[in-house]
Write a protein that binds this DNA or RNA. Sequence first.
DNA 1: GACAAGCACTTGTCTATACAAGATGAATTT
DNA 2: AAATTCATCTTGTATAGACAAGTGCTTGTC
Lengths: 245, 245
Amino acid sequence: MNLLFLGMTNPKPHYSIISEFVKKQIHEGLYPKGSLIPSENDLCIQFDTSRMTVRQALNELVKEGFIERKHGKGSFVKSERQSLGLLSFKGFSEVVGSADHEVKTLMVEPPAILPWPQGVFESMSRAESGEYFTLKRLRCADDAPVMLEYTYLPIEGFESLLSSDLVDGSLFKTLSVKFGVDMRNLEQCLRAIQADTTHSKLLKCPLGSPILAIERKYITNQTGLFVYSKLYCYTDHYSISNILN
Amino acid sequence: MNLLFLGMTNPKPHYSIISEFVKKQIHEGLYPKGSLIPSENDLCIQFDTSRMTVRQALNELVKEGFIERKHGKGSFVKSERQSLGLLSFKGFSEVVGSADHEVKTLMVEPPAILPWPQGVFESMSRAESGEYFTLKRLRCADDAPVMLEYTYLPIEGFESLLSSDLVDGSLFKTLSVKFGVDMRNLEQCLRAIQADTTHSKLLKCPLGSPILAIERKYITNQTGLFVYSKLYCYTDHYSISNILN
DNA sequence: GACAAGCACTTGTCTATACAAGATGAATTT
DNA sequence: AAATTCATCTTGTATAGACAAGTGCTTGTC
């Protein structure tokens, strides 16, 4: 069985091979958001396996938030990227209509390689060190800055990131498509602080105004690999909303 | 089959019956945190069913965060209550050791039945109304107040809550044990605001200091039933941390 | 005593099958 | 033409087995 993989000494279970195959196709755009993926029986035939195995594969994708299953209809693509920890903006001072906000991302500084920021993530990381690919970005909604984001990715294994562009401008999408790195889990730490001069300048908010500070540690599917983020949000005009489950 | 349920017109699938049975036993303290629950084969015999069905039941409990499975060893109880949206306190000004903090909950006012708080959750709720069981509580860590919590539960169907005490002082645990209501999902909205006089007095923080404001809508396993919460956190001495997956 | 083999127990992966139940469109009846 | 039935697609639930692989205890050997 499994003509596709004959000869390859593949330690991965079948359901894992199938779910990664489908996930890759979703990432490649073969099945855009909202579209129907092949039915369980189709996948059974395609991979010459039993339905329970295919179901386990698809349930993995449900758990990771890639697809949604509908009884009697089929499995639909939920989102092209993993929604884990995704923050969406929701205007609350102007709850007028459902006119979505235009979201832009600006690089505050060009991407750089810097040593591990000592003391910043002290409560979440144990003994990180070495060089980190560092991104300083400003997220804007409707041309108004709402979030200042510092992202730290260990450079080891990602040297090629420096020379290449990000897929769709998204670091996480790039990691998933080009390196097979997916975010599995997220640990975060929330505080309310007063804006300092940097925050005030970049977020265009008064000095000392309350801003939301979030420290994040993303746990990936590669053991030992973590991505860190520090977010500063000015929430007077836009609040930060998210959905957990 | 299923001697236990013969005669009951039970619309629920077997795996659901099994997972709720085990969940109830965990809640009742039969299997404390860290202990071993019966093996898959034991449950197969107990419920006269196949292993795949038992596995589906246990996987439900894993998904909900109640148990953890270890290959070759067994299934262990992870936590006595659902961790969904649970906020844990993590001192960051005193990251000394792993000495856990003593957490207490004080009632600011006795529980009351009040009409739906107009305008408070306007961005998350559509057309809520009627009477709500309202709790105003202050959460303390090591005797220091860190979080002010307003909770709103529709009174319909929960009239008996007024006369009875909360199980272990926890509203969510009471809902789960006595009413079979479990939190499935959480929608939240985060902001940083300035402390007003109420916040300042209760949270013992300076007037105008930055505090974290969180609006929450809990989606339950009973369609149409939502629990709302509004949290105010003073994060100068304690930050708010949580884990998503 | 130290080590290795074997055994019993656990969860993990997988097969092949069956029927239930929701969705949908075509064929049939009214 | 409208309504109903039916066939056929989908996913959901369930059975009864099989072997693999991790864990830990017992037993036997050196």
